[in-house]
């Protein structure tokens, strides 16, 4: 257990689809749990695979699937909250099949149900949110009462930075609201091993009024761990990759550098990427 209990931290990871948010989130949650913190990870993506490595490869039933099958009145907290690696509690919001319905509403409905159950508790809540903030539903984790600290996950690729920059716009807009506590907490570089990638992402972070909190290099151990249905933290606890996730976990706990971001114009973003080519 940590020496001193902390005020509950609620953090959200946003970034371009496929950039590694779920891998980063699951490893971060696993690392935090090993540091003695009570962690809840909520997958906010209809793909429902955010917590799979924490659950040893199992897809847990999603809140929205359970609501559909049983009706909300029949649901209990233990139906939607599942214990994973080292006691990390896992929730998947779920949502519709691609091309039908409204996934954003699914996120909002999930939050309402979790509130009703009093399930949003612990030392750290990690919200793992899908690619872009495409509608109000996917901004839900940023709203008052939920995640105050937003981390952008990006590589040095332009499209990934572009998505991160767009999320900065959403944070800026939300943070201007009265009573809003949503702030940008930092940028995590999930590297593609491009030349000068760390420098580029660090400079991007500075330009949007934030900082690079962790550079996670590309390593095949991540794929190996996933093929073994585990997080890197569990599969190779002493690996150098695991050290990066543990370092990120320590940074998240200590981080007090919360800012209102200053998103870049598209020309400025492209010029920045060009500088580091």
């Amino acid at each position: 257990m940590p020496a001193n209990r902390i005020m509950m931290k609620q953090i959200a990871l946003y970034g371009k689809g496929g950039i590694g948010k779920s891998t980063t989130s699951a490893n971060l949650s696993a690392a935090l749990s090993l540091q003695g913190y009570d962690v809840l990870q909520i997958g906010c993506d209809p793909k429902r695979d955010s917590t799979r490595m924490l659950m040893h490869g199992n897809f847990i039933p999603t809140v929205m699937d359970l609501v559909r099958e049983r009706g909300e009145a029949q649901l209990r907290k233990e139906d939607v909250v599942h214990n994973g690696f080292n006691g990390v509690r896992c929730v998947e919001a779920g949502g519709p099949e691609p091309g039908v319905g409204c996934a954003g509403r699914g996120i909002i409905a999930t939050f309402q149900i979790l509130e009703k159950f009093g399930a949003l508790s612990g030392d750290v809540i990690v919200y793992d949110v899908l690619g872009d903030v495409v509608c109000g539903g996917f901004a839900m984790p940023m709203r008052e009462g939920y995640a105050q600290e937003i981390y952008l996950v990006t590589s040095g690729e332009l499209m990934s930075l572009y998505a991160a920059n767009n999320i900065c716009k959403a944070i800026k807009r939300l943070s201007s609201r009265v009573k809003s506590t949503c702030r940008l907490a930092g940028v995590i570089c999930n590297a593609r091993n491009m030349p000068r990638e760390e420098e580029l992402v660090a400079e991007f972070a500075l330009r949007v009024n934030s900082s690079l909190v962790e550079f996670i290099p590309r390593d095949r151990i991540v794929q190996l761990a996933e093929l073994n249905k585990q997080t890197v933290i569990e599969y190779a606890q002493e690996s150098s990759q695991a050290l990066h996730y543990r370092s990120l976990a320590a940074c998240v706990i200590k981080n007090t550098n919360l800012t209102i971001p200053s998103p870049l114009e598209i020309d400025a973003l492209e010029s920045l990427a060009l500088e580091f080519m």
């Binding site: 519709p96 099949e97 039908v100 319905g101 996934a103 509403r105 699914g106 409905a109």
Partner: peptide, 10 residues
């Protein structure tokens, strides 16, 4: 209802 909004109402 909410489920039809989330999953589609067809």
């Amino acid at each position: 209802q909410d489920a039809e909004i989330v999953f589609g109402g067809e």
